[in-house]
């Protein structure tokens, strides 16, 4: 029978390899992934290990320290954020029905979409704000860590193949128009009306290392915190707290919660089922 390495040793060794790799990346390149949630991070690291034809995470460390192009490839792996237009229609319906009436009371509206990825959510927000007559006095700040994703977000061009699903989502989210009115088909690309993004500022921002840059009535950050460990989640919630106006609104992903956070007491649920919270003061 083959000798099997004691499982606890194996697990501890892998953890050590990951810690050393992240430490090396931080010191050599300045990117700090040390506070990321281990389970999904581990998956993406192994994906890169195999993609490079390597056997171990230590092997990946060696290559990354000596070959910046390998770091680029890993960065791309680590910054993937799968998104879609009007993803979770119930959430977008709640925005329209419960959040926008609050925003309407402000003469000027600032929205921060943190971790906007390739921009599908930006255009979803802009369309809904437009239909509710709020887009003219709204400014959306769209930020992401990944410059390439921001580049795509700015272009407002999305694949035609998703448009049928997005149209269904749009209607279920309370859309009031013809969805196809907002884009023109260009081969297999749907180009969205540039007017939708006129009031949007796209900027690179790293939630882990960058600070607060404005005050917002609404922060939308969906399915980003799930990739962070609990300590880092606390730090980002601190950042959001410092970036919200009085009674400002924080919208998280469907399965994200502030319940276990030490910041929980600062918020009350606005739409509990959709993880939309409002600052108590």
């Amino acid at each position: 029978m083959a000798v099997r390495v004691n499982d606890d040793v194996q697990e501890a060794r892998e953890r050590l390899e990951i810690e050393l790799l992240l430490e090396g990346i931080q010191r050599a390149y300045g990117y700090d992934f040390r506070g990321y949630a281990l389970a999904s991070l581990r998956r993406r690291l192994w994906h890169r290990v195999h993609g490079e034809g390597l056997e171990t995470i230590s092997g990946l460390q060696e290559r990354i320290l000596h070959d910046p192009s390998c770091m680029d490839r890993l960065l791309r792996d680590l910054s993937i954020n799968v998104t879609g237009m009007f993803r979770d229609p119930n959430f977008h319906r709640a925005l329209r029905e419960t959040v926008f009436p609050v925003l309407r009371t402000h003469p000027f509206i600032r929205v921060w979409n943190a971790g906007c990825s390739t921009g599908e959510e930006i255009y979803s927000l802009a369309i809904a704000l437009h239909e509710e007559g709020l887009l003219d006095r709204a400014r959306i700040y769209a930020t992401d860590i990944d410059e390439a994703a921001l580049q795509r977000a700015r272009s407002g061009a999305f694949s035609m193949e998703h448009m049928q699903r997005y149209t269904e989502n749009y209607l279920r989210a309370g859309g009031r128009d013809e969805f196809s009115r907002y884009y023109s088909a260009d081969g297999d690309v749907a180009r969205f009306d540039p007017a939708l993004a006129e009031g949007t500022v796209f900027a690179q921002h790293n939630l882990v290392t960058d600070g607060s840059f404005n005050e917002f009535q609404l922060i939308v950050c969906r399915n980003v915190l799930i990739y962070f460990g609990r300590e880092l989640q606390e730090a980002v919630l601190e950042l959001f707290g410092a970036s919200l106006t009085r009674f400002g609104i924080l919208a998280l992903g469907r399965k994200e919660s502030i319940r276990q956070s030490r910041h929980a007491g600062a918020y009350e649920p606005l739409v509990e089922s959709e993880k939309i919270f409002r600052r108590r003061s």
Partner: peptide, 18 residues
């Protein structure tokens, strides 16, 4: 949950939209 991967890590659940 629908549309999420469920992972486990040291006594806690972790979700992803990979």
């Amino acid at each position: 949950p629908a549309d999420y991967h469920l992972l486990v890590d040291a006594g806690r659940a972790a979700l992803s939209v990979d």
